[in-house]
Amino acid sequence: MFDQRTTPYAALLMRLALGILFLAHFSLKFFAFTPAGTAKFFASLGLPGWLAYITMTVELLGAIALILGVYTRIVAIVLIPILLGAIFTVHGPAGFFFTNPNGGWEFPAFWIVGLLVLALTGDGKFALKPTTRQS
């Protein structure tokens, strides 16, 4: 059983938190590492450099969609492969704890859980394009 008075606000809080995290990670790649630097990093991992541009685009559009509440359930699922990629290429080999050099996989894994929770609960309050019926 869930409290229909507070659950929509919990979903809103989760949506905003995850959206801000994705926006922060996009900003790091775009402003600090630069798109070209991010592409070189992807290439150093054995990934195609162009995948960096797709990743940044998905992070930016996904962040905006989550913050605004546009197709929240779909966007949450679409963002999961970004984090799985981070786990399998960078953070997984570093071990479990995120305080390890190169960060462990605990934080991206927990982030995936948050996205799954959001995909299951829906948009929450103040969504621009709700994908679930609000009472």
Rank of each mutant, 00 (worst) to 15 (best):
P81Q: 00
V78S: 09
A39D: 08
V90G: 06
H91G: 11
A65K: 03
P130M: 04
G19K: 07
F26W: 13
G103D: 15
P108T: 06
G104M: 04
V90T: 14
A109G: 05
F42G: 13
I64G: 12
L115S: 03
P35L: 10
T38I: 11
A119V: 08
F22G: 05
L16Q: 12
A86Q: 04
K29S: 09
G103Q: 14
L68S: 10
A65V: 09
G69R: 01
A65E: 01
F33D: 15
L84E: 04
F30E: 04
V117C: 11
T72P: 04
P81E: 05
L115N: 09
M56Y: 02
A32M: 06
V70C: 04
G124Y: 05
A63T: 04
W105F: 15
L12T: 08
S135L: 14
I77Y: 11
G62A: 10
W111H: 09
F42S: 14
T99W: 13
L21A: 14
D3T: 03
D3R: 06
W50S: 10
Y53M: 09
V70H: 10
A11R: 10
G103F: 09
A39N: 03
A127F: 12
G37H: 11
I67Q: 02
Q4W: 06
P48S: 03
F96C: 11
T6K: 12
G62Q: 00
L21V: 10
R15F: 07
G92M: 07
P108G: 02
P35Y: 04
F88E: 08
F110T: 07
G124T: 05
F26R: 01
G114T: 01
G19M: 12
L118R: 00
Q4S: 11
F42M: 14
T121W: 08
F41M: 15
K40E: 10
F41L: 14
A76L: 05
E59W: 10
P101H: 08
L28H: 15
F107K: 04
E59F: 12
F26P: 04
F41V: 11
I82N: 04
H25E: 03
V113R: 03
A10R: 13
L83N: 02
A17E: 11
A17N: 08
T7F: 13
V78L: 14
L13Y: 05
M1H: 08
L21W: 07
V117L: 06
P8I: 06
F88A: 07
F30I: 01
I80K: 04
D123F: 10
A36H: 06
T57P: 07
I80Q: 06
L12A: 02
T99A: 15
W105V: 01
